[in-house]
Design a protein around this nucleic acid. Structure first.
Length: 142
RNA sequence: CCAGUCGGCCGGACGGCCGCGAUCCUUCGGGAUCGAGGAAAGUCCGGGCUCCACGGAGACACGGUGCCGGAUAACGUCCGGCGGGGGCGACCCCAGGGACAGUGCCACAGAAAGCAAACCGCCGGCCCUCCGGGGCAGGCAAGGGUGAAAGGGUGCGGUAAGAGCGCACCGCGCGACCGGCAACGGGAGCGGCACGGAAAACCCCACCGGGAGCAAAACCGAAUAGGGGCGAGCGCGGCGGGAAACCGCCGCAGGGCCGUCUCCGGCCUUCGCCCGGGUUGGUUGCUCGAGGCGGUCGGCAACGACCGUCCCAGAGGAAUGGCCGUCACGUCGCGCUCACGCGCGGCCCUACAGAACCCGGCUUACAGGCCGACUGGCAAA
């Protein structure tokens, strides 16, 4: 029961395995410290309208202690991003999943915050250099 | 003071801003309280709890444990003691039922590896001799040599040479009796000495052990397919069952769906209510317990009894955090000081590590620091 007028600073979370599977099939953007996945949410019964974020920290990242620390740092970044007066870069009705790499442990906190905000924005920009460059000059489809 | 042994404990503190989880309160703005570890870890043992299996008892198989006594819910844990070894010592380390119940093994070397035997060798007798020695039957095991181990050791006597053949001491075996709950210790006396090692090769003996695990398990339960019951309904033809009502199967027609139309193909076959099933999800299990702390008493101790007091994480893609000050601590440099130490600046600004049903242990990881008991030196008294 958050007050919508006040602007909730609590970011919505992904808590279902199905949501994670769906996000993995969406857009993808890789940075040195993490991989960001995102997909437009399918209409479901929930009344959540804002962006939702999920975290994936596999055993490859480190021990349980290190994995917990990675998740806490990323959660703090998300919390600050949601409370940003200039507005969160995350789009409404969009699900994001941050797949962490080990460098999240050691990266400076400020750099981490900037990197994630940039990554969210970049995810929605049209990818003009896709992996398959067109053999002919593309006829401006969009 | 130096060197060392053992045991126990802590493992940053305070504060600011912004946050997270649970519970309670709320005037719905918010507020209050509590919120990781000694290992939460590895999952190696032992229990509680849950489900499954199971009539009792025994036998067999498999696995585990293995000196004795005690502690405990239980243990492979803990405490006390026994045996062997190491250390000047405090203390530490190692092994711990049985080798006349049986089978097998003891590499290499060596003549011989488990029952006594004899390669070199020693001894006297007989025979031969080219006088160097050789041969035959016999008596030996001291010496040499091999080995982890060769069937007691040393000395004296003894002898042809030798031999526990005799004697002394040591070792070894049996052992009345004594101490101890016991493991075990002591030991009069007896025995001329046999009975080698390894049970981590198998094995024998004693004791213990059903299986799976909170993703256990219980409850609530949308949708869909299929199932059951009741009531009403049920075009045509064929076959089967039945006394009939009716039921089952096949074909045709109609309808619906696969898939928007045609062809073709496939699937389904009325309606209502209830039961049942239990997937996504939700709730419970979920934290008051062989519990923490303090005290008294019993016990060498592990531990136990009693009294008082406290409530001390309960998440579920998983809370206990992010950023920053100040101060400790450590370390480095510089300066002052005979020295203890003090001041300034820099660095690290902390090790191992994060509860997931709960307890008792074990094992492993761990920066730095603190306390206690004891031992051996040196100095002082």
């Amino acid at each position: 029961m958050n007050d919508p007028a006040r602007g909730s600073t609590k970011p919505e979370r992904l808590r279902r395995r199905a949501d994670y599977v769906a996000a993995a099939k969406g857009r993808r953007l890789t940075t040195p410290v993490f991989t960001l996945q995102g997909v437009e949410r399918r209409a479901d019964g929930t009344e959540q309208s804002g962006p939702r974020f999920g975290l994936t920290v596999s055993r490859k990242v480190g021990t349980a202690t290190e994995r917990n620390r990675v998740k806490r740092r990323l959660r703090e970044v998300l919390r600050r991003m949601a409370g940003d007066p200039e507005g969160s870069p995350g789009r409404s009705r969009f699900d994001y999943v941050v797949v962490a790499r080990r460098d999240v442990l050691s990266a400076p906190f400020d750099r981490l915050a900037v990197a994630l905000a940039d990554a969210v924005r970049s995810l929605h920009e049209p990818r003009r250099d896709r992996r398959r460059p067109p053999p002919h000059p593309p006829a401006a489809t969009d």
